[in-house]
């Protein structure tokens, strides 16, 4: 594990304040299978903390233990100072939770969904209406107040659930894959809404996701989880910096001379050069100096650059670095298309 549980600059925690969420050596076993394996971290007040991992990594299991939904096999979890195993109701009262599955009642209206939850959370009658009106405005569903939930789009239903999780004005908010299944436009809308609400209500948020861009965009700190284990934890920037940097430069040149590949190889910080035909080269470099040098070299040699693309380290690279592979989804997909061996052929 790299980094530590030190809150970063984006939080509004008083120095020395107890963490909003603290997880100590927590594990969950289903029979012989260990879904979560000795995970520890803490989340400071006001922080947005991301749990990033592929399908089956144990993200939902972690959230469910922290939110009192399943029993903890080993270790402890504290929410706002309450041990979730010993004082589950105190913990429940101080958190809002959006489960992974969309669970709003489709037959009920938007407003009814919110009011039932307000009652379940014991919000006093006089506060209920005001809180619901404010939340509907915050998630931009005021217009749809009396619409049956089944008539809403996926993005709107997610926003309704965000509002539902906040009817009792909790300070700590758990969201399990809030944008999975949404189209790109709705995803961005949900991100913007969450950022705004977080600021306004001074929330601490814990989000799980398997989208790198989501974690990068929203989270102050990210914990990478794989096979139930925490494999890395830090700010997105530091995580990227911790991976041996490798920029990928793809350039296409008109009329490159025969020794051009050797000249590219000689540029500063270049690790490897690969010719891909039609004047196209793929260069892996360890620093940003390469690009400048490449352009200067081409200019002085009088060679026209037809195209140039530079990609720096992403969280994908971080993920591959720490887990040794791509997101597991893709592997599974690849296997799914392998033809079965014909009789007599070795598998």
């Amino acid at each position: 594990m790299i980094g530590n549980a030190k809150p970063n600059g984006g939080t509004n925690a008083a120095p020395g304040a107890p963490p909003a969420i603290a997880v100590e050596h927590i594990s969950k076993k289903y029979g012989d299978f260990t879904a979560v394996d000795d995970v520890s971290f803490s989340v400071a007040e006001g922080e947005i903390f991301g749990l990033l991992g592929p399908n089956g990594a144990g993200k939902s299991t972690l959230i469910r233990m922290m939110t009192t939904l399943i029993e903890i096999t080993g270790g402890k979890a504290f929410i706002a100072g309450h041990d979730v195993s010993k004082e589950p109701n105190a913990a429940r009262g101080s958190i809002g939770v959006i489960p992974q599955a969309m669970t709003s009642d489709l037959d009920l209206t938007v407003e009814e969904n919110l009011s039932i939850y307000a009652k379940l959370y014991g919000v006093p009658r006089e506060q209920r209406e005001r809180a619901i009106a404010k939340l509907l405005a915050d998630v931009e569903l005021t217009k749809w107040r009396t619409a049956q939930t089944k008539t809403l789009s996926g993005g709107m239903r997610r926003r309704l659930e965000v509002a539902r999780g906040l009817v009792h004005s909790p300070k700590i908010f758990f969201l399990d894959e809030p944008t999975t299944g949404l189209d790109p436009v709705s995803r961005v809308a949900v991100w913007e809404m969450l950022t705004k609400i977080k600021e306004e209500r001074r929330l601490t948020m814990l989000i799980t996701t398997h989208y790198m861009d989501e974690a990068d965009r929203l989270c102050d700190r990210i914990a990478i989880v794989d096979h139930g284990k925490l494999v890395a934890l830090d700010t997105p920037l530091k995580l990227k910096a911790s991976v041996p940097a490798e920029n990928v430069i793809e350039a296409q040149f008109a009329h490159a001379p025969p020794d051009w590949e050797r000249m590219l190889q000689a540029l500063p910080k270049v690790n490897s050069v690969q010719s891909e035909g039609a004047g196209m080269y793929r260069i892996l470099s360890a620093g940003t100096a390469t690009v400048t040098a490449l352009v200067e070299c081409a200019l002085s040699a009088g060679i026209e650059i037809k195209s140039l693309a530079v990609q720096s380290t992403t969280l994908d690279d971080v993920f591959v670095h720490y887990t040794g592979r791509q997101l597991r989804d893709e592997q599974v997909k690849a296997y799914a298309f392998v033809m079965p061996a014909r009789p007599g052929e070795r598998a």
Binding site: L69, I95, T103, L120
Partner: peptide, 14 residues
């Protein structure tokens, strides 16, 4: 199965 009860169970209902 749809998770409606999961929603109830995170509230302080006894």
């Amino acid at each position: 199965a749809r998770g409606v009860h999961e929603g109830y169970l995170v509230t302080p209902i006894t």
